[in-house]
Design a protein around this nucleic acid. Sequence first.
DNA 1: TTGACTACTAAACATATGTTTAGTAAAATA
DNA 2: TATTTTACTAAACATATGTTTAGTAGTCAA
Lengths: 207, 207
Amino acid sequence: MNNTNLTDRQLSILKFICEVIDDASRPPTIREIGYEFSISSTKGVADHLDALERKGWIEREPGQARGIKPVREKTEKLFGASTGLPVVGSVVAGGPTLARENLEGLLNLDDLFPNNDDLFALRVRGDSMTGAGIYRGDIVVVRQQWQADVGDVVVAIVDDEKGTVKKLSKVGEEIHLKPANPNYDTIVKEPSRVEIRGKVVGVIRKM
Amino acid sequence: MNNTNLTDRQLSILKFICEVIDDASRPPTIREIGYEFSISSTKGVADHLDALERKGWIEREPGQARGIKPVREKTEKLFGASTGLPVVGSVVAGGPTLARENLEGLLNLDDLFPNNDDLFALRVRGDSMTGAGIYRGDIVVVRQQWQADVGDVVVAIVDDEKGTVKKLSKVGEEIHLKPANPNYDTIVKEPSRVEIRGKVVGVIRKM
DNA sequence: TTGACTACTAAACATATGTTTAGTAAAATA
DNA sequence: TATTTTACTAAACATATGTTTAGTAGTCAA
């Protein structure tokens, strides 16, 4: 079966609706659904929509053209989000492959790094932070801020040069920007010559 | 000014259309736009849509209800994608903050890890791979596969236990699953007792 | 076996929505 | 200065689209 409280026909129609939205950025009309499934009467389709609504899979705007809105939290678990990776709790033996049903959720950047317009991403150029798990070519996710605490990994500009990613530390009045790689030296500057631009809150690496 | 070839009024309307789509998963009608901007005649709105279409910011389905489709590649650069982080080329001195205009692009998982239904994500439990930049709590992005090459970081199941993330290597007939942390021992097994489940193709860390 | 649910047809209806025609006025452009 | 573009009003029109009414037939649980 299909593991939901929907009939196979209802499930197909729900899937079609979601696909059209992904594809055309707008829901299909009742007649478009009818054409797709060879249902000649609009009432036939409307009955399915009534069922989908009653069972909580879609919402509708009465009287509005294309007034069908799938309930995303539910449909994304079923068909996969247009964006996002399925997160599995653990990989266990025996089971064949990924079953969409027993997932922990869907991974997408919005959930992981909620963007209040103060986040940006930056590709790391050097390898001065390998000891902290940040490698050349990694993308760091940075929250824009102009102060940071000792111990934070920050994006800072030293002497009006390009930005660099280092660990922040202070000794007396001096700012120390510490690499996490013994082959690099700590940058020691007066506060006036260091401009903090943000704090690293995440790392993304493609291998 | 607004840096595009659009008038301020046209830009406002385009933005409204994009917001409605993000919000309601369907575009507004001409009259809904008119109501929002206090334009009493549908022709007034239609003129704006004509301009937006002529200038390449939207596409339309003639005669179709809510037949407005913004050209995503362009509008996302202007307003930001509903999902995605702005990627800056480099952080330079002087410039105040993030300017949406001079961005390298928008980061989202779909672009970074194109999902052909064979990817999944898994949270790393131990710290046996810290030497390879994979820490406890990191999320690894895994491509589902049942073979892997020597040197790949793989997700494997040993003796029907839970999955583990290790580096694959072979010595004669034996499979070696190597940690990247000197405190852990290499797992040595016959091929029949090791089940490879996927190859790690990415790492995501939230700090 | 009765009633509820599924899954439709056919036809008429109501209205939501795009289109067209006929203008006006100001601003931008050639 | 003439012409185009922007930015609308007002009204009529055409049709795309949701809704309702009246039925049919099969399946499934009480």
